[in-house]
Amino acid sequence: MQIIWQPKIALIFFLLIFFIIYFFYLSGEKKYKKDTFQTMAYFSGKTPSQNIKLQNIYWGFFEDFKKLYMFLAKIQKENSNDYIFLFILGSIIFLLALSL
């Protein structure tokens, strides 16, 4: 098994993509006034009534697995009793699995 890996080809590829993007950047509008309506974002529909935060972006995933998350949060409650209990449990599982 050989990994064929040529850093020169990767560098040439990278420079090519960089020049294409730079070409797109250069062919834009040169004269525009800052901080007027020309630089604001364009909403093509209803503007959102309430500010939805970005950190809820995976809300659907979280909702589907809610039971599993609640189960895990009930086990690990962040005090040292639970930590030591889980450590001893883990080492007993290791011992049982190794001595088979």
């Binding site: 005090n79 009793n81 030591i84 209990f85 001893i88």
Partner: peptide
């Protein structure tokens, strides 16, 4: 000792 660490909540007992 292990029972003390697993089931007691008082810090000095730990």
């Amino acid at each position: 000792g292990l029972f003390g660490t697993m089931f007691k909540k008082n810090l000095i007992k730990l």
